[in-house]
Simulated assay, not measured.
Amino acid sequence: MSLPSAPHATLADVAIREMRRETVQLPRAEASCITLLRDYQAFLVNRDARLPEAIAERVADTAVQNIVLNLLIEQVRRGAKAPGI
């Protein structure tokens, strides 16, 4: 697949890895693509820092923490909804 710029290619890669649950339209303009990529990467960094903290607050066993983190990330990427109560 040919994309118009390196930021487009990077954003496409992130979209494939992180947003598997939906179709994503890439911005046409390179500047918009760069902005979206920067903002989404900042979101991912924050998510990847906060989730382990939140899990550690609830689970003491580090092996279980890693299992929960991996399962949770997979659920987020697939767009799974939390079970209803």
Rank of each mutant, 00 (worst) to 15 (best):
S2E: 13
S2A: 15
S2V: 07
S2W: 03
L3A: 09
L3C: 08
P4G: 05
P4C: 07
A6S: 05
A6R: 00
P7R: 03
P7H: 08
P7M: 13
H8N: 04
H8C: 04
T10L: 07
T10N: 01
L11A: 00
A12D: 14
D13H: 08
V14F: 02
V14M: 05
A15H: 02
I16V: 08
I16H: 11
M19Q: 13
R20Q: 14
E22Y: 06
T23H: 11
T23N: 14
V24E: 14
V24N: 04
V24Q: 01
P27I: 03
P27S: 02
R28E: 14
R28W: 00
A29Q: 06
E30S: 04
E30P: 00
A31H: 01
C33Y: 02
I34Q: 11
I34F: 01
T35V: 02
L37T: 01
R38F: 09
D39R: 01
Y40Q: 00
A42P: 06
A42M: 13
F43M: 04
L44R: 10
L44I: 15
V45I: 15
V45M: 10
N46F: 12
R47D: 08
D48S: 09
R50C: 12
P52F: 04
P52M: 08
E53G: 14
I55W: 10
I55N: 06
E57C: 13
V59L: 13
V59A: 03
A60N: 08
D61L: 15
T62K: 02
T62L: 10
A63M: 02
A63N: 06
Q65T: 09
N66C: 12
I67R: 06
V68K: 03
L69F: 10
L69C: 11
N70E: 12
L71E: 10
L71A: 12
L71G: 09
I73P: 04
I73D: 13
I73E: 13
E74D: 15
E74M: 11
Q75I: 15
Q75E: 14
V76P: 03
V76Y: 09
V76L: 08
R77A: 14
R78M: 04
G79C: 14
K81I: 09
A82K: 07
A82I: 10
A82C: 03
P83M: 08
P83Y: 03
P83L: 09
G84R: 05
G84S: 07
